[in-house]
Simulated scan of single mutants.
Amino acid sequence: MIGSKDDNFKKELKELIIEECDKDIEASDINDDDILFSEECALELDSMDALQISMALQKEYGIEANDSKKLRKIMVSINTLADYIQPE
Rank of each mutant, 00 (worst) to 15 (best):
D29K: 08
G62S: 05
E44M: 12
E39V: 14
M55G: 11
I85N: 08
M55L: 14
L13R: 00
K73W: 03
K70D: 14
M55Q: 13
S38Q: 14
A42R: 08
N31Q: 11
C41K: 03
R72Q: 13
E44T: 06
M1D: 02
M55C: 13
K69M: 11
Q52H: 09
I35H: 07
D24R: 15
C21H: 05
S38E: 06
L16I: 14
E15Y: 11
Y61G: 07
D67V: 08
K23N: 09
F9G: 01
A65M: 15
N31L: 08
K23P: 00
A50R: 06
M75K: 00
L81G: 03
I18Q: 02
K23R: 15
G3W: 04
I35M: 13
Q52E: 06
Q58P: 00
Q58C: 10
F37V: 03
M1N: 04
S38D: 12
A42T: 09
I74G: 03
L51C: 12
D49I: 08
K70A: 15
K5D: 10
A56F: 00
K59W: 04
I30L: 05
S4L: 05
K10T: 02
L16M: 15
S28L: 08
S77Y: 01
K11A: 07
M48E: 10
E26H: 10
L16N: 08
I2K: 14
L16T: 05
D24L: 13
S47L: 12
S68W: 06
L57G: 00
E60T: 07
E20R: 02
L16S: 07
D32F: 03
D29G: 06
S54P: 00
S38V: 10
P87G: 10
Q86I: 07
K59H: 12
F37C: 05
R72H: 10
E88K: 11
I78S: 03
I25P: 02
T80E: 03
I17V: 14
P87D: 07
N8F: 07
I78Q: 00
Q58L: 11
D83C: 11
D49W: 10
E40I: 10
I74L: 14
N79F: 02
C41Q: 04
I18H: 01
Q58M: 13
E64Q: 14
T80W: 02
E64G: 04
E60R: 11
K59R: 15
N31W: 03
N79S: 15
C41A: 13
K14T: 02
S77I: 04
P87M: 10
N66V: 10
M75Q: 00
D6A: 06
S28F: 05
S77A: 05
L81F: 05
K69W: 05
E12T: 07
K23M: 07
I18P: 02
K73F: 05
G3M: 03
L57Q: 03
G3E: 01
M55W: 10
L81V: 04
T80F: 03
N8C: 05
S4R: 06
D67E: 08
Q58Y: 08
D22H: 12
D7H: 11
D46R: 14
D24Y: 09
K59M: 11
V76I: 15
I30R: 00
M75G: 04
S38C: 09
D46M: 09
K11T: 15
I17T: 00
A27S: 10
K5E: 09
D7F: 11
D29F: 13
L57M: 15
D29P: 00
D22Q: 13
